[in-house]
Write a protein that binds this DNA or RNA. Structure first.
Length: 204
DNA sequence: GGTGGGATTAGCT
DNA sequence: GCTAATCCCACCA
């Protein structure tokens, strides 16, 4: 069912603004296929990183080897190493050369939970994906996924209605907008979004 | 219950 | 040499 299907999203989906995409991604599914199996989470928390007037954005100081994917095709993944130990997963947005992305901060685990728990050292379900570094471990996301197409895989995005057998579809979600977490520069900008009432968002 | 520090690398000053 | 879009565990109360 989940394996080897192309995403139901169009290329055009990724052409709207970064902040509106940060909201649209809430409730959508992130599917990871690997040799260890398939794992799926529903996105419940995101942050937008903008190219203009946003000092927290990696792209704000120009292109480097690490952030080059941020300036590439929208609809691809940008994965980078933070604090020398953890990976963070972003959806590249905006047009080629602009340098914007949406950081995925938390997921609700919906499928392949045993595999996620193995990767996460047996943590309880609410803590498997409740942070940007945690969800990349749970889904096995690493530097190999940097630059990968999110419509064709192996890491894929699907619409809110794509898997009614795995999790009840969320046609509408109530979105809360607040300030971003874990940054010192640009901390006052209201660019963090999460699904109201979700018990799977990251701790502040 | 809360606080403090360690892990470990890319990039900036 | 210092900081970072982080997490975890030891220690104290």
């Amino acid at each position: 069912m989940v394996e080897s299907q192309e995403s139901d999203l169009s290329e055009a989906f990724f052409s709207s603004s970064t902040t509106s995409l940060a909201k649209k991604l809430l409730g959508m599914f992130l599917v990871s296929e690997s040799d260890r199996g398939v794992s799926v989470g529903r996105i419940v928390e995101t942050e937008a990183y903008l190219s203009r007037n946003d000092p927290a954005c990696h792209a704000s100081k120009g292109m480097t080897k690490r952030n080059a994917q941020m300036f590439g095709e929208p609809g691809r993944g940008y994965v980078y190493l933070i604090y020398g130990m953890y990976h963070c997963f972003n959806v590249v947005t905006a047009k080629n050369g602009v340098g914007e992305a949406v950081l995925v901060r938390a997921l609700e685990p919906v499928h392949g939970i045993e595999l996620m728990q193995k990767r996460r050292g047996g943590k309880p379900i609410p803590e498997l994906c409740s942070g940007p570094g945690k969800l990349t471990i749970a889904l096995g996301i690493n530097e190999k996924h940097n630059g990968g197409c999110l419509r064709t895989g192996p890491l894929k995005l699907y619409s809110r209605e794509a898997f009614p057998d795995l999790a009840s579809p969320m046609k509408r979600v109530k979105v809360v907008q607040t300030t971003r977490i874990g940054i010192t520069k640009g901390a006052e900008l209201p660019l963090r979004f999460y699904i109201e009432g979700s018990s799977f968002v990251s701790k502040t």
